[in-house]
Design a protein around this nucleic acid. Structure first.
Lengths: 207, 207
DNA sequence: GTCTATACTGAGATAGAC
DNA sequence: GTCTATCTCAGTATAGAC
């Protein structure tokens, strides 16, 4: 069946989003999907490659929208540098939309960050888009050296990761279930925070 | 021998710092330490509890120093609110000192964050200290609502985590090995970034 | 109280029959 | 393409030697 692959992908996405990558065994996935264990390795090669495909399937749309928004902004600006707020908006709005439309996706992405899978997996899918944004931000933040800009974007990625699916004990009142509304509010707060951080003066070169 | 426990702790700290928690098996640790597998469970109960003790041993000094610095600042300020820079300084300086003195510790902490072990393990050790800093920051940042302050501190934790041991592909020039000097510079940049973020105006309440 | 030897369960991966 | 059987290695548990 051609559905076998799809069933594995769908079930993996749901279970990994709910339980995390490490906590979700292949046997767990194939049990719920009603397929054989070896089918996973036949179609995807390994557990990690399965995750790779799950991410790719969901990330493609978000990244495409990011690129489209950014290019729209740049076209409208002519040759002028874009304000940081607009660039961050183009980066986060597609994610916010994806998140409020399908919390499953955000939960999954959050798991990726929370489990430290960014360097090996997520970066692979987001890197090209991210590099494009770095290029634009360089002109929006001319007061920063290249190293400092890259450092701050590193901080941004870290902040985003915890915002999306960090430990909620600090962020939500006890007993409150996180909903789409919370997510949007948190993302809005994140963008404000990041703008403040990115626009901060350069770090003094004192030793 | 009483050394068995110490040998396990030392070896675990080194290997987990180098390879990560998930990638370091108990058999790996006991092999290098030259002790028996069951000794780990005798002394620590489980792999997770072993990690717990490794963290506790290293974190205690840093947290004590943080508290001492904060209390010193507050005593000097009388009843006045402390500037954010000073509070962040009291939080990060002990970590920077620990990091430049022993990169092993920082690497280990970074692994914890990177592998998503904060909620279950690290928070347990840092929570009391962190709560104390939240209390102080509340007065330093009166323009923020409670929820927004907590959100921003969440972002701070996330940014710190990636700064300490995130994927370095964005942050360091290719081929350069991260050293203590880099670490200190990165932390200084982080603090500047965080001050900017924390001092940013409140997020507009638009829906 | 400390530690050793060994066995148990569940994980991801693989070979080969169909 | 799919499935059965099996391999290796992980964390864990226990029985018993010193």
């Amino acid at each position: 069946m051609i559905d076998t692959k799809q069933k594995i992908l769908d079930t993996a996405e749901r279970l990994i989003g709910d339980q995390g990558y490490a906590a979700t065994s292949l046997r767990n996935i194939i049990g719920e999907a009603g397929v054989n264990l070896a089918a996973v390795h036949y179609h995807f090669g390994s557990k990690e490659d399965l995750l790779d495909q799950v991410i790719l399937r969901k990330a493609a749309a978000v990244n495409a929208e990011r690129m489209a928004l950014l290019e729209g902004l740049e076209a409208k600006a002519g040759g002028r540098a874009l304000p940081v707020e607009e660039v961050l908006g183009a980066f986060f709005e597609p994610m916010i939309r994806a998140g409020s439309g399908s919390p499953q996706f955000v939960k999954l992405m959050g798991r990726m960050y929370a489990e430290g899978l960014i360097p090996t997996i997520v970066a692979k899918h987001f890197q090209p888009t991210f590099a494009r944004f770095v290029q634009t931000l360089r002109r929006s933040l001319p007061h920063l050296t290249e190293v400092e800009l890259l450092s701050r974007l590193q901080f941004m990625i870290g902040a985003m990761s915890h915002a999306v699916c960090g430990p909620r004990q600090f962020a939500t009142p006890p007993g409150a279930a996180p909903d789409a509304q919370d997510f949007v509010r948190t993302m809005q707060r994140l963008v404000v925070f990041l703008i403040g951080g990115l626009l901060a003066p350069p770090t003094p070169e004192v030793q």
